[in-house]
Simulated scan of single mutants.
Amino acid sequence: MPIESSAPITRRRVVALAAGLAAAAASPWALAQGPADGYPKQPIRIVVPFAAGSGTDAVARLIAQALGEALKGTTLVDNRAGANGIIAAEAVAKAAPDGYTLFVTTNTTHSANPSLMKSLPYDPVKDFTPVSRMGNLPFMLVVNPSLPVKNVAELIAWGRANPGKLTYASGNSTGIVSGATFARMARIDMLHVPYKSTPPAIADVIGGQVSMMFVDTAAGLATVEAGKMRALAVTTKERTKLFPELPPLADTPELKGFDITSWNGVYAPAGTPKPIVAKLNQALAGIANSASFRERSAKLGFDAFGSTPEEFAAFTVSELAKWKQLIQAAAIQPE
């Protein structure tokens, strides 16, 4: 039904999953019969930790629509922006573990916040049940077109020649950590301007109130294509197939080794019954690995793929360690 709005798995696994789904029904996201056949009996609320118009919100709406079709139910997108995703994460952690509250979130709430904050009202591991990783959302470095730079090397040179004049906006942890890491590695004096969400940060970069930002492609692509912002590079170590024309920041000598990747996944509250988690995983992994969903999400700059709950659980733990190291290396002090 329509939305009422208010580590990658192996090729063999993908083929096997696709074959199973095709045999079950004609719908590309239909489900085989299983132990949770009565689920869902009511609308599923999908909580998003960022505002409408953000990259995660755009991806979450695609997921919600596809999940509703797969489960033959209704999905409701619930944006709970603010406090770097903490408001939404706490709400999901305290929700009833009955399968009717899901969390489409990113490394902000489940990798970076434990190292960015002195204390959190939730535990990213103990308070959540991993359902499926859904893919990666590449970030790119964008600047206001009036800034006289055409590439990263020129940006670094301009920043060094004009100490204190470069400012960078952020609307999430990836933007925060990418900006601080860039400033440290490039040896540039920059001012950080934090925002509650990505859309107003983009607006101020376009308006010239802020020089630059690291933005997810889903949120920034349209303004880049319209010429309102200039994209210089991606934050991933390698070029992304979604935007092969953009070089990695790591290609610039001063930024060798720069590698920051944002990811998206779906969690349920801790204690959600295993049969429901299994049914949700079957649906979500099938969605993420389907050609139709991958094609639609690629237009947002999202690289979709699914996982098992076990794979996603192990990935969550490993990312906590990775982001802790990134934040410490960037000399970001917990708030």
Rank of each mutant, 00 (worst) to 15 (best):
G73W: 05
Q42D: 11
V215T: 02
E310P: 01
F50M: 11
T106R: 07
L232V: 03
P334T: 08
A313D: 15
A313F: 12
R12S: 13
G68F: 04
K324V: 00
K228R: 15
F214W: 12
R296V: 02
M212L: 13
S119P: 00
S132Y: 02
K279R: 15
A36W: 01
N79I: 00
N289A: 12
N172L: 07
A91F: 06
F50Q: 14
T106Y: 05
Y100W: 06
P124S: 11
P43N: 09
W323I: 03
A52N: 11
S292G: 09
K72Q: 14
V234R: 04
T101C: 07
T106Q: 12
A233M: 08
I156M: 06
Q209T: 12
K299E: 15
V234E: 03
N289F: 11
P273W: 04
A26M: 05
R11P: 04
L221F: 13
F293W: 09
T129H: 05
M134V: 14
W158Q: 01
P148N: 05
F305L: 05
T217R: 11
P200L: 11
K228M: 08
H110T: 12
I327H: 03
P163N: 09
L300V: 09
K196W: 00
M140D: 04
G53A: 12
G159Y: 03
P248K: 06
K118E: 12
P273D: 12
I87T: 13
D123K: 06
E69S: 11
L326I: 02
L280A: 09
E335Y: 04
V317K: 15
T75Y: 06
V152C: 07
S170Q: 06
M185L: 15
W263A: 10
A36I: 03
T252H: 09
A30K: 12
P334Y: 12
I3H: 02
T236Y: 06
P49R: 07
E311C: 03
E154V: 03
F182H: 04
K241S: 11
E154R: 07
T198P: 00
T74I: 10
G208Q: 10
K299D: 13
K41L: 07
F214M: 04
A91S: 14
A186G: 07
R230D: 02
I63A: 10
A7Q: 14
H192G: 00
I332P: 00
K118P: 01
I46N: 04
E335P: 15
P199T: 09
